[in-house]
Design a protein around this nucleic acid. Structure first.
Length: 354
DNA sequence: AAAGCGCGCAACCGCCGGTCT
DNA sequence: GAGACCGGCGGTTGCGCGCTT
């Protein structure tokens, strides 16, 4: 079919807009609204095509346009949204008030894209260019547990820390899941595109990577069991050998421990489990979510990590049904610059695309 | 001082989907 | 149902500006 571009008409001006033209356009739209863009130029006394007028208005003259540099928050938002939406600039722009799709697109092409490349990420897929992350979850988990054992922490501190660790592990597992080549034996929805949601930010990944340099020397040290009152369900060695970090989505990391609850030295068991794909029948969450939970007699909480399936194909109900449960303690991992899971689930975008 | 170069950004272009006739 | 119209979107271009050599 096709149709000729509206600007094919001869005699219509192209190129940069003059202040006079801007003034005419603004004046007309303020008085009459834009109405039909095709008819607008004649009515406004402009020798331009309607398309040019629309672009000039939406990208430059609109009164609600925010100009100037992008803030770090905006930058992070763009990165996160781009990892989910790809080059859907208009969709991204709806989440950045005052910013136009054109501006975001330009910012991406001139700044963020290069930044990601410099960081070793493919800007289109948000995936690392190497397999450097293959051992990341393992190393971090070991390092974090080592840290737990090295410090005499209160039960509350331990619970909080473990919960935080679980969040990280879940997120990294998700990243790792995304990093898997499509030839993996893990079942994947056919509809899952090669470049999809990556809810771990790239900056975060870099932070985590950097943090490894300082902890990697310690992770193979033999732990001193006396430093940690456990029921021996976990220790570094066991974890090292048994935790199949690299075999998502079958992964399951149980780790339970006992801890002093009060002055009477009463010990109670608590559990911290990271489940993949919500396969546990007891899980209150629908399949497709990573679940990490911790509980104690005094409190219990859990987080829901991003779905393992592509959000584009995730059933709407499954998300809504979980909204009430999404009560993570984002503060426990906010310091790492992680994407708070509760924020993700509260984000209208997340539901919009689901 | 001038030429070369890279960068940022406004604007253009072609295509697509929705709506109307 | 087909074609025209329209608005919108994403990719690309080209110009102006500042920095470097």
């Amino acid at each position: 079919m096709g149709r000729s571009p509206c600007c094919d008409e001869s005699g219509l001006k192209k190129g940069p807009w003059t202040p006079e033209e801007d003034q005419k356009l603004v004046k007309y739209i303020q008085k009459h609204g834009h109405g039909s863009w095709r008819a607008l130029p004649k009515l406004a006394g402009l020798n331009r095509c309607g398309k040019s007028c629309r672009l000039r208005w939406t990208n430059y003259l609109r009164p609600d346009i925010k100009r100037g540099k992008f803030s770090p928050e905006e930058e992070q938002t763009i990165l996160n949204l781009h990892s989910i939406l790809g080059n859907k600039w208009s969709a991204i722009a709806t989440h950045l008030p005052g910013r136009t799709d054109n501006e975001i697109k330009n910012f991406w092409n001139t700044h963020l894209k290069k930044k990601l490349i410099q960081m070793g990420f493919d800007p289109m897929t948000h995936r690392p260019r190497t397999d450097i992350f293959s051992s990341l979850p393992h190393l971090i988990a070991l390092a974090n547990l080592k840290e737990l054992m090295d410090h005499q922490l209160s039960w509350e501190e331990q619970a909080l820390k473990l919960q935080s660790e679980a969040v990280q592990i879940a997120k990294i597992q998700y990243l790792q899941y995304l990093l898997q080549p499509t030839t993996t034996t893990s079942p994947q929805p056919i509809s899952m595109p090669p470049c999809t949601s990556n809810n771990i930010s790239d900056l975060e990944a870099l932070n985590l990577l950097n943090s490894l340099s300082s902890i990697k020397d310690n992770i193979h040290q033999t732990p001193n069991p006396s430093q940690f009152e456990t029921n021996n369900d976990i220790n570094i060695q066991t974890l090292n050998e048994s935790v199949p970090f690299a075999c998502l989505p079958e992964l399951q990391i149980p780790c339970s421990f006992s801890c002093p609850l009060d002055s009477e030295n009463m010990f109670q068991a608590s559990t911290m489990t990271v489940l993949s794909q919500g396969e546990n029948s007891n899980s209150p969450h629908s399949p497709g979510f990573l679940t990490a939970s911790s509980s104690s007699p005094t409190s219990s909480s859990h987080i829901i990590a991003p779905p393992l399936t592509d959000p584009m194909t995730t059933n709407n109900n499954s998300i809504n049904n979980n909204q009430g449960d999404a009560c993570s303690t984002s503060s426990s991992y906010g310091g790492l610059g992680l994407w708070p899971v509760d924020c993700l689930l509260e984000d209208p975008l997340f539901h919009e695309i689901a």
